[in-house]
Design a protein around this nucleic acid. Structure first.
Length: 541
RNA sequence: GCUCCCGUAGUCUAGUCCGGUCAAGGAUUCGGGGCCUUCGACCCCGUAACGCGGGUUCGAAUCCCGCCGGGAGCACCA
């Protein structure tokens, strides 16, 4: 009916006829269907298997030509990239790959403010984050190197009669803007404005005394858009360029300039920056420039991660957090520390597409993605939190040591020798839960537990019952011989201590392991083999 | 308050531009079952959604209007 209008008036008839046919077809055997389909010249219907590859979810970039796309990342250097701000990395990187484009890293280090200061240590920190995420920019630029290039643009706007030097006090400016009133300076001729601008550049004004403002419609429904400030004066010491400049562009104008000067073809950024689109476009329209299109995405929050950049900043500075890789920051590097791969994080992030909706996702979705990637290659080890020593009466002599598989499904990962009974450590919680019952020590033997269970650190006696595997509750154990202390750092910053099997002494720093019935962990990078406790970070169940 | 944006299962998302192939696909979670000596993996099965109300149309998740709900922004910060 979509293609043949003559059928439309007979829609009911068509509908019932289609229903009949469907009923008929549904009753036919598959072989018959295949034959008939072939007779009609139809292709064999392949089972639609949606590829798991991510980028397919992203829309095409408007007007993008492979090999000619230029994108840019513009982080403000005020802290490590976290799970939310990492989105810009992966989205830009995905498009760059898709179009074989260029990616510029442009540090947005204009002078900032007293509250929002540029700090030099963050340049390297962010560079490190990019490296970790597998994003290698084609070029690294600093806004602070490009300030002088912005001045001619100011003149172009001024010469169009579209900007003026305003000397209102900040409060006054804000108040007038709110009420849609003009400042006296707004009527400056281009010549007067240019002269004032030169005075401003020449140092005639102190910080706060004068700004360059764009002329927009003072009746604009969005008060924030009315005569926005383009340049202001600041005496703050910049960590890279010191006091070389006093007149600094504000973000929107600086991008109106640089998106054009750097040849950026598509601007991909978070939707917190949508008003900036409007400003950039306004400037471009004014100068008759066709600027790049903008694409945005909404806020991404991970439910478990209460990411406050300023809080992280404070806690890291004050030493409350263990640096920027503290799991509580949910920074990229903290996820890496936990054993969550950047590939998983990328997949996770890109799965949200470019939706403008603000979303909150449970971390479990990320964990599932990561688990899929690491499960097959991760060695299994035994760990017991809050252990109680269990002496087993009647334990078989020949089972002082057993060979256990490193992975239940993958023999190629080998086995390891594990010291076993007659003395073990078991988790206090497990024992309490099964007090008085017969249980199976996983992969080993069956024992009967006493009905009284002490606190962690205590000792009890249990009785050997039999060897064959039975349908009994399975408990994780660590042989007392060779047991090694283990310290697990959890994502909330707390530590769990317990004992692990002897093989953990030979663990490699950064190795990812699965503590059976406990979860995936990663050995700390700075843990030295053979020191105790073995220090690991919890990834996820 | 003003400006902009967004409403598809518990969660996230595809589909919306350009109405029919959508009795709505995928992921994750949850429930049931199977299997392996993990609470992990894998396999099978299942629950579950177009915010509400009108309109246009033979036909609406898709177009129009209204409402309701949610979010973000509103700096001489970025």
């Amino acid at each position: 009916m979509a293609t043949d209008p003559s059928l439309r008036p007979r829609a009911e008839e068509v509908r019932s006829r289609v229903a009949e046919l469907i009923a008929e077809i549904a009753g036919l055997p598959v072989a018959e269907l295949t034959d008939r389909l072939a007779a009609l010249g139809g292709a064999e219907a392949p089972r639609a298997e949606t590829p798991r590859e991510s980028d397919t979810g992203l829309p095409a970039l408007p007007g993008a030509v492979a090999g000619q796309v230029v994108l840019r990342l513009a982080p403000f250097p005020s802290g490590a990239l976290h799970i939310g701000s990492g989105r810009m990395l992966f989205v830009n990187q995905a498009y760059r790959e898709r179009y074989d484009g260029k990616l510029l890293l442009v540090f947005d280090d204009t002078i900032g403010s007293e509250e929002k200061r540029v700090e030099v240590e963050f340049f390297d920190l962010i560079l490190g984050d990019l490296e970790l995420a597998g994003v290698r920019p084609d070029q690294v630029l600093f806004k602070s190197d490009r300030i002088a290039a912005h001045y001619p643009w100011a003149r172009r706007v001024i010469d169009r009669g579209a900007a003026y030097v305003c000397r209102c006090a900040q409060e006054e400016l804000r108040d007038k803007r709110q009420r849609g009133l003009a400042c006296p300076e707004r009527s400056q001729t281009p010549e007067e404005a240019a002269a004032e601008w030169e005075r401003m550049l020449g140092g005639a004004y102190a910080p706060g005394e004068a700004v360059l403002r764009l002329k927009t419609d003072l009746a604009d429904p969005d008060p924030a858009f009315r005569d926005r400030v383009l340049f202001r004066i600041s005496d703050l010491d910049h960590p890279r360029v010191g006091h070389r400049y006093r007149v600094w562009p504000l973000l929107e104008f600086s991008w109106a300039v640089d998106d054009v000067e750097l040849g950026v073809t598509h601007v991909l950024r978070g939707k917190d920056l949508v008003v900036e689109d409007r400003m950039e476009r306004y400037v471009w329209d004014l100068l008759g420039i066709q600027g790049p299109p903008f694409l945005h995405w909404g806020l991404l929050r991970v439910r478990e991660a209460k990411v406050s950049k300023s809080k992280s900043y404070r806690e890291v500075k004050d030493g409350v957090y263990d640096g920027w890789s503290d799991p509580r920051t949910w920074s990229l590097r903290s996820l890496d520390r936990r054993g969550i791969s950047m590939a998983a994080l990328r997949e996770f992030t890109l799965s949200f597409g470019l939706s403008l909706a603000d979303i909150e996702v449970p971390a479990e979705t990320l964990y599932a993605e990561n688990r899929q990637r690491i499960d097959a290659t991760t060695l299994r080890r035994s760990f017991v939190p809050a252990p109680v020593r269990v002496e087993v009466d009647g334990y078989p002599f020949d089972l002082a040591e057993v060979q256990l598989a490193n992975h239940p499904d993958r023999a190629e990962l080998g086995t390891r020798a594990v010291p076993a009974g007659p003395a073990f450590y078991l988790a206090q919680a497990d024992l309490a839960h099964h007090a008085g019952a017969e249980v199976r020590l996983k992969d080993l033997v069956n024992v009967r537990l006493p009905s009284e269970v002490p606190e962690a650190g205590g000792t009890i006696r249990a009785a050997f019952t039999s060897r064959p595997n039975q349908r009994l509750p399975r408990l994780q154990w660590v042989g007392a011989s060779g047991a090694v202390g283990v310290d697990v750092l959890h994502p909330d910053g707390t530590h769990a201590v317990g004992l692990g099997e002897a093989a953990l002494r030979r663990a490699a720093p950064r190795e990812i392991l699965q503590f059976e019935r406990f979860g995936f962990v990663r050995v700390e990078e700075n843990w030295t083999a053979a020191t105790e406790p073995v220090r690991v970070v919890f990834a996820h169940p």
